[in-house]
Amino acid sequence: MNAQEIIDQIPDDTLLSIINKANELTWNFLALKVMLARLKLKLSMMDNDIARQQSCRDLRDLFRKSRNIPNAQKDMQLIAEQFGTPFA
């Protein structure tokens, strides 16, 4: 599997857990930090199916677009360790 296929396989539930626990982990990639802060706020204000699906799409997009950046890769490994995603 290449990186994109792996990212595509992360379940939405895992992405939502990452958002909910955004402040509990030590992230490396600034773009991910500001994205998580934004999505956490968004879901705190309108927690419905559409908002959840859009948030998962936004987070997945960021992972795809940053998959070759070392700090983003470190964070994806962190996610694998914490959430047991297909990275592991």
């Binding site: 599997m1 990186a3 792996i6 600034l30 773009a31 500001v34 998959r67 070759n68 950046i69 070392p70 890769q73 994806m76 490994q77 694998a80 297909p86 990275f87 592991a88």
Partner: peptide, 25 residues
């Protein structure tokens, strides 16, 4: 500005060589 506007910060941009991810499948 680093995405957001902020104060009392230092901002810098680095350019590096891309690294293919090495995730196990």
């Amino acid at each position: 500005i680093a995405y957001h506007l902020m104060n009392h910060a230092t901002i810098y941009v680095t350019v590096g060589n891309v690294q293919e991810p090495v995730y196990a499948s």
